[in-house]
Nucleic acid binder design. Structure first.
Lengths: 159, 159
DNA sequence: TGGGTTATCATGGGATTTTATGGGAGTCAA
DNA sequence: TTGACTCCCATAAAATCCCATGATAACCCA
């Protein structure tokens, strides 16, 4: 598999360890190494995560921006200084940094949600409400997605 | 064959396994790998399914959008976090996630209905009533399809 | 054309493997 | 020492593999 899909809830144990879901690990390992990059989401109370290719994409888009040096630096600093590279052990577990736990309001359980190029980690009940809101927005914006996802209005090629 | 056609009812066994109809499997394998992508339909109480090409289309349209936009995350969450990639075993069976079973109201039997680029999975009796409605709408809108599909009284886009 | 033989397929169930998770023991630094 | 972090092993539950069966469909040949 090469994109992050589906969602699961895993436990954070007494030592602060969490298992990265096995399907996510196989995506990560396809990208090059047995670990994750995590940083606090800019837009929500969750943690964004991904592998080599996510980090490369972000680095590239920062380079491409035609900004004054200071602004680019500020963005890069904001992003990278809060980004952690965590290698998981042979059981597939990492221990989360305090600041990320805080940002997402995590206690003893965490929802891993695959969203394609990256995944997010949420406090489970917070994720539930976000998901419901997302579904509503997606329905409103379904034209953006394109004709291929036949998720359409009057549809019906059916029979 | 490269599109999904016709419909069959298969059993969900005690372990929660279902056989993907063999004709569907051959479509899927033509697309690259021995598995399905499943997600809850946005518009009905059913499960949408397809192969590589369906998921690639979805992924591409989302990639085209901007990386940090809030809307993009919401859209990607709505689509991907509820999408499951299930590789079927050598008998052609998958086990369905709880949340999909719930969404479609499945118990011990499921109707697979081919609708071209993708297929749907329905609780059998729910599918029956949906099919009847669809046929009425399809007849009303048959001009939309174009002259090439001669989709006359005895219908059948099939074959 | 009809009848019998072969494949193919959906399904049941036992055996094996994977996965998430708990906890012990070792390492290193303050 | 104490705490943070590994590495390693144990376990239970879930997913997957593998084999057997019956039913149906496809095939073949007189």
């Amino acid at each position: 598999m090469n994109i992050f899909l589906s969602n699961t809830i895993n436990k954070i144990d007494a030592k602060g360890r969490v298992s990265i879901p096995s399907q996510f690990r196989s995506v990560l390992e396809n990208q090059g190494f047995a670990g994750v990059y995590l940083y606090p989401s800019f837009t929500s109370q969750s943690i964004d995560g991904g592998g080599e290719s996510l980090i490369n994409q972000i680095a590239q888009s920062i380079e491409k921006m035609q900004l004054f040096a200071e602004e680019t630096d500020a963005l890069a600093t904001a992003l990278f200084s809060e980004t952690y590279q965590l290698n998981y052990d042979q059981d597939g577990r990492v221990s989360l940094p305090e600041s990320l736990m805080m940002h997402a309001g995590l206690k003893d359980r965490v929802t891993f949600a695959g969203i394609g190029q990256k995944f997010q980690m949420w406090e489970p009940s917070a994720f539930e409400s976000f998901k419901n809101d997302s579904r509503v927005k997606a329905l409103q914006n379904r034209d953006l997605i394109g004709p291929s996802v036949n998720f359409s209005k009057n549809n019906k090629v059916e029979e």
